[in-house]
Design a protein around this nucleic acid. Sequence first.
DNA 1: TAGTTTTTTTGCCATTTGGCAAATGCTGTC
DNA 2: GACAGCATTTGCCAAATGGCAAAAAAACTA
Lengths: 189, 189
Amino acid sequence: MENLINYLLQFGQLNQQQIDLITSKSKVVELKRDDYFSEAGKIARQVAFVDNGILRVCYYNNKGEEITRYFIDENNFAVDLNSFTYQIPSSEYVQAVTDCRLLVFSADALKDLSNTIIAWNGIINQITAKSLIEKVSRISPMLAEDAKARYISFLDKFPQLANRIPLSLLASYLGITQSSLSRIRKNIR
Amino acid sequence: MENLINYLLQFGQLNQQQIDLITSKSKVVELKRDDYFSEAGKIARQVAFVDNGILRVCYYNNKGEEITRYFIDENNFAVDLNSFTYQIPSSEYVQAVTDCRLLVFSADALKDLSNTIIAWNGIINQITAKSLIEKVSRISPMLAEDAKARYISFLDKFPQLANRIPLSLLASYLGITQSSLSRIRKNIR
DNA sequence: TAGTTTTTTTGCCATTTGGCAAATGCTGTC
DNA sequence: GACAGCATTTGCCAAATGGCAAAAAAACTA
């Protein structure tokens, strides 16, 4: 809970009463590795803050291959914004890469917070923009890099993640096969 | 101007008086091909709505190669959000790919609109989120595709853009060399 | 139109990555 | 420790892409 509050406080002021309200509206959810937080085809009705563990967002392309779009680690929110905002079926899965501890907010809870806490919408909009900007600026340079450079950049930005994520998932995130990633690893050592 | 108003009306209601105010706060800027709207190293102080033409956002990677991050065509806003929001130097260039007609808002103008038009912030936040989500969902699948598939997807989504954009820029957007793109084109014909 | 410049296509060969299957390594269970 | 099940590495070869330079095509200018 502390993690979440500290995270929120980066984006705006909250008094103790507001913090308590936020706390009371959240629900702790524990996921085992490979469990799904949300699934493609269903409408996203919850938002999760990752207190502990790693999630990934993935989907199946038209060849039936499973593609990892990105990872979400500690102190980040997970939600399919398109699905949640417009209440349309999601096109992606959110799945636990490791055992996870999530703080989950329902749409109703968020609405309550929005109606009660003056600064709430501002905070949420900032977080939304920031996390989307991060996604863009993380993915975008990858296109211009070859596989080795992408892997090195990943190691560089998320040194602590590489060993917590199975090679097959990391490969699908980097857009290469797991054999290739294995060779790249060997090559780097 | 009509384009802009219609675009804004998608995201919220505006009365005639508000529309006039918005109009009065915007400034028409004409760019010639290759002109810059904003430059890396400088702080973004303006937001542009592309009324006509195509912009691109680009930067130089550590090998000195010029990389096109994305294109912005008619009826979309262009701004380096990070730079504009936090008033920090931009890391990218915004450049005209074709001659362009832009509607430009200064930070002050936007502040005035925000203070005067109740719905303004809500509209802007929606536009921000939507355009970022679009960027992510456009770029993200590209990583999992090979060059040919990326080009075909591009043609598919922006059939009218491909012939207006020089091959070298399109190649740098797709993350391949221009020779490769040229070969892929031949291969498809 | 001829000449000039820019853009796009090609050829040739090196390097990277993929596809597939087998081998190896690792982890947990009995 | 032996086994089963999963994850990772490796070998082999094919396909995709890059690098570089020259040729061809297209766009622009005088």
